[in-house]
């Protein structure tokens, strides 16, 4: 045991070693290992005394940690009222058919905020005519070149029949015709496969719209009657616009986002 304050005195007179800080740090770091070694080795009454002391130390440690945590702990808020009130008869019925429910209020808010013609893909790369159409040679010797084959995915109505070859200027290959589209509802985050009703607008050209060509960014009309959307007058909404989000001719399917 040190007699008097000779350590402090020496330190005051001569200062500390250059590497004092480092040595104390290392010593402290080694302490846990030393302690553990001791506690594993010790037995008998000494072990009992040691264990008891250590238990007390740990208890105070836990308490201090809890005290420090108090500041950052999150407490259950008793005053908070849950969102989305439902009547007693619908409580505990979540998940039955809630997925299809559309919040009209949210819809209205969106409408007020956004411009009327805001669409998911605002800028569309125009498609040139020579990319869209392939020239088809015709005539006995194949020297006439007034026929065009559409190289993109098209939508033809239910009752479409091809014209007589003499008058058929644009050929829409049946392998590239699509009747159904995968439509994602942006608020519900769910995707449905719905029938296409028509092509509303192909931003590249009016001709493409008339031909029913679907490229990326095209606005199509889809049949949403099975989603159960209702207008305020209580009628079932069945035609809604959607915008194509992929390149259908490359993917072999039409993916789109519903415009709400």
């Amino acid at each position: 045991m040190p007699q008097h304050e000779h350590m402090e005195r020496h330190r005051k007179l001569h200062g500390v070693r250059m590497d004092h800080e480092e040595r104390t740090r290392k010593k402290e770091a080694r302490l846990v290992h030393k302690r553990s070694e001791f506690s594993q080795k010790v037995h008998g009454i000494r072990a009992k005394i040691y264990q008891k002391r250590r238990f007390k130390e740990k208890a105070t440690m836990r308490k201090t940690i809890a005290m420090h945590n108090e500041r950052t702990n999150t407490h259950a808020n008793d005053e908070a009222v849950a969102e989305g009130a439902v009547p007693a008869y619908l409580l505990d019925r979540e998940g039955v058919s809630r997925a299809k429910v559309l919040s009209n209020t949210v819809k209205q808010k969106r409408k007020e905020k956004a411009g009327k013609w805001e669409v998911p893909i605002p800028k569309v790369k125009p498609v040139a005519d020579d990319e869209m159409f392939k020239v088809m040679k015709s005539g006995k010797r194949g020297k006439k070149a007034w026929k065009r084959v559409v190289t993109k995915v098209t939508f033809c109505g239910e009752s479409f029949t091809r014209k007589n070859p003499k008058y058929e200027r644009f050929i829409r290959p049946s392998g590239l015709r699509m009747k159904r589209a995968n439509v994602t509802h942006p608020e519900l985050k769910t995707t449905f496969q719905l029938d296409i009703l028509g092509v509303r607008k192909n931003p590249s050209s009016q001709i493409y719209t008339n031909l029913g060509v679907m490229t990326k960014g095209t606005i199509i009309e889809v049949n949403v009657s099975e989603l159960g959307l209702v207008t305020t007058s209580g009628k079932v909404a069945w035609g809604k616009m959607a915008q194509v989000t992929n390149n259908p001719e490359l993917d072999g399917c039409v993916n789109s986002v519903l415009l709400v």
């Binding site: 439902v86 009547p87 429910v101 009209n104 209020t105 209205q108 305020t232 007058s233 209580g234």
Partner: peptide, 12 residues
Amino acid sequence: ATLPGHADEVYA
């Protein structure tokens, strides 16, 4: 008669 006008589900 249909009584339309509400913008969302009629609960009560």
